[in-house]
Amino acid sequence: MKEFSYRVARPSLGHFPGHHRSRRGDSGHEFRGHVPLQDAPDARRLDLLASLRDPLGQWLVRVASERKAVPVYAVADLSASMGYAGERRKLDVLADFTEALAWSAWRTGDAFGFVGCDETARGDWLVPLMRSQGAGAMLARRLRALQPTGRNAAGLRDAHRLLRRERSLVFVLSDFHLPLADIEAVLATLAHHEVVPVLLWDRAEFEPPAAPGIGRLASLVDAETGQRRLLWLRGSLRERWKRQLQARREALEALFRRQRLRPLVMLDGFDADAVTAHFHR
């Protein structure tokens, strides 16, 4: 089982013991400050020097934050475009990532949940938060067998309704082939949480079909709607295609920067080491 390491930028607000820094608890290992003895009645942590310096003459004790768990969610795009297969089928990459995330969360002591969306937030693809060693493997098998038919991923806007209100680490897994306004709306609904956009891409998506000589006739299919269109792929059209793809990528990166998010790009397959590096650079 592939495993990766992740961490949250802000202290956890959870109540369960875990791996992440927090601002809760009194008897951990990370010194947080002093409080009056009556607020934390443990004479073993009495600080005599701090008490002597206190202008109010109070007995002060040292309090140290405890490590806490955080809820971890995968919010996944299950629309038809995720059925695209280039070097790897996108849903297979999604399954690999989800299985590794669930396993990593279990190993870290965090609860894991999953929300799958296409045109709506799908109740049949909802996995409530749980601490289960085998949750990821079972979910990955379902994802690999899925034949997606959703015409869009509008349901991502409603995914926040299925998450706990407690601040969580949320991985949004999609190819992000949505209008930029829709992506911005999805991220706005998740602003309360710590969000990691995971871009599931394939090199073949960004390379127009070869068109030797004066070009060739190509039949192209819209992955979401299934609409087919015939195009004469001449050299000028291929160059314009490349420019538009580059402009789209730059616009997407600019959107994430405005939201103060660092996207994680999974190109041609899942790489656990790349996920760990994303959180530790």
Rank of each mutant, 00 (worst) to 15 (best):
R32K: 05
V35S: 05
R240V: 11
H19D: 05
G123M: 12
A9C: 00
G25L: 12
W103T: 07
A121I: 12
F112K: 00
L245R: 13
G33D: 06
R141S: 07
D271L: 01
S65I: 11
D26Y: 14
G215F: 11
H160I: 02
M130S: 14
V63M: 14
R238Y: 00
V93Y: 03
D39C: 11
E239V: 05
L264S: 05
L37E: 02
A191Y: 13
R24Q: 08
F270M: 00
V61Y: 01
G83K: 05
G113E: 06
L180T: 11
R122V: 01
A121M: 11
R243D: 13
G25T: 14
A74F: 02
P179K: 08
V72Q: 02
R32Y: 13
S51A: 10
R234S: 10
H280Y: 13
S219T: 12
L146E: 05
D222F: 04
S81W: 03
R167G: 05
G109L: 00
R161W: 06
R203F: 09
M1K: 07
A40M: 09
L233K: 02
I214F: 08
D42E: 14
A135R: 03
P55D: 07
V198A: 06
L180E: 15
V196W: 00
G14V: 08
E166W: 00
G226F: 12
A9S: 05
V72N: 02
Y84T: 01
H19R: 08
L233M: 09
A64N: 11
S12M: 10
D47E: 08
A111V: 05
